[in-house]
Design a protein around this nucleic acid. Structure first.
Lengths: 109, 109
DNA sequence: TTTCTTTATCGTAATATTGCAATAAATAAA
DNA sequence: TTTATTTATTGCAATATTACGATAAAGAAA
């Protein structure tokens, strides 16, 4: 075991979960906040900002990229990562839909 | 290792991450959706809705409860779980703050 | 070419998560 | 009291995640 039963849930449920999971680590939250607030996006700068080793940061970047929240473009020897606008907005909408669906009047207890 | 360096990040970053982490599993998304849409909230009904064993569902409920997204009240032999309004709204705001902070104009690439 | 800089990947270790069956605990019903 | 019913907990196995050092890969600079 230790294996999520993905097939048993809807595509939408899995999509929401995978976005949330990607955001579910403080280092990745910090990376996203950094990319949002800074004009530059060179990996080296991100590594300098975080209390983690270069290889660990690279791994976190890979995870954020794999769910599409960020995208990277090669610039010479370095790589520039930034927010992937389309996925960012879609993710925001998906989470909002979950959160906004709740109505206090309908809460059962 | 395998241990997140929590102390190295801000309280806000950790808070956002732990909420997201709790939502980061399709079964927990399904539980939340069920609690939002249904008028009843008895654990047994939740178990019936999910393709997982009773003990596994109980564990997922525990996780959602531990971050405060849901709360449970005992009703005889059964337990009634529902959305915790205050935490729900605060969590929504926290995630919105992250998502809304991004401005396309400022994206670096 | 050689060396430096930058990022990705590999290997490894430790911890966490997912899932289930079995069982405990606690109230309700017979 | 005895038996159901309902949920939580324990114990276990399998997989995933986190983190780091070492190293590879690839372009830039000397």
């Amino acid at each position: 075991m230790g294996l999520t039963k993905t097939e048993e849930f809807t595509a939408e449920q899995n999509a929401i979960a995978s976005i949330a999971k990607a955001i579910g680590h403080p280092a990745r939250v910090a990376i996203l906040e950094y990319l949002i607030s800074s004009k530059t996006c060179i990996t080296g700068n991100i590594v300098d900002q975080l209390p983690l080793s270069q290889s660990t940061v690279s791994q976190h970047l890979k995870e954020l990229k794999s769910v599409g929240l960020i995208k990277g473009s090669i610039e010479g020897t370095s790589v520039c990562y930034c927010i992937n606008e389309e996925v960012w907005e879609k993710s925001s909408n998906r989470l909002n839909q979950l959160f906004n669906h709740f109505q206090i009047e309908n809460n059962c207890c």
